[in-house]
């Protein structure tokens, strides 16, 4: 059985954060192909989304960590992704997040997933700092960043030419306090 093994699981009140599975791809691809993905370079055609999902998965092996898939603890339904993300070329380790459907919005689950994964990055990976890269028009993610105690810094330009605001997270000591 070919598998990606050795990925920890984090449980929160309503969510299970776990490694990506092939069966998550359909939900992820639907998100990537939708207007919801406009702040992360989308909408993306399926073959591009497939590569992006491969990248997300492989980042776990290459770096030893990556974004988790967060799923409803009760139903098992995958709802989005959140966690540490640091591809080559990134200015600093990021806490990223995406909620994959409208239906999953408005209940604070992105906050629940992002906060749990940030704590994991600090406590388990030993990160000393973290940022989030957020498109200037992405007001929802900005609101979440503010709720997580982040403050805006300068802009970052990706190699695709897209730009994003750097939001700095409070450090490990402040988050633990």
């Amino acid at each position: 059985m070919i598998a990606l093994s050795g990925i920890p699981v984090i449980e929160t009140e309503r969510l299970r954060l776990r490694g990506p599975r092939p069966s998550d791809f359909e939900v992820c691809a639907t998100f990537m192909a939708s207007e919801r993905a406009r702040h992360i370079g989308g909408p993306l055609q399926r073959s591009i989304a497939w590569r992006a999902f491969c990248h997300l998965t492989g980042h776990w092996v290459h770096r030893g960590y990556s974004m988790f898939i967060f799923a409803d603890r009760q139903t098992g339904e995958p709802l989005g992704m959140a966690g540490p993300w640091f591809p080559e070329g990134w200015p600093e380790g990021e806490i990223g997040w995406s909620v994959w459907s409208d239906a999953a919005e408005g209940r604070g689950i992105a906050h629940e997933a992002a906060t749990a994964s940030r704590r994991w990055a600090y406590e388990v990976l030993g990160w000393k700092t973290a940022i989030s890269l957020i498109a200037e028009e992405n007001t929802r993610s900005q609101a979440l960043a503010q709720r997580m105690g982040c403050w805006p810094e300068g802009m970052f330009t990706f190699d695709t030419g897209m730009t994003a605001r750097i939001w700095r997270h409070p450090g490990p000591a402040e988050v633990a306090a």
Binding site: W50, R51, F53, C54, H55, H62, E88, D159
Partner: peptide, 22 residues
Amino acid sequence: KKEQQAAEQFASFFGHWVMRGF
């Protein structure tokens, strides 16, 4: 390839195995 693209390709090696089984 720039290092960033090379890293994406490298990571995709692992993802491809998980997704396709080869």
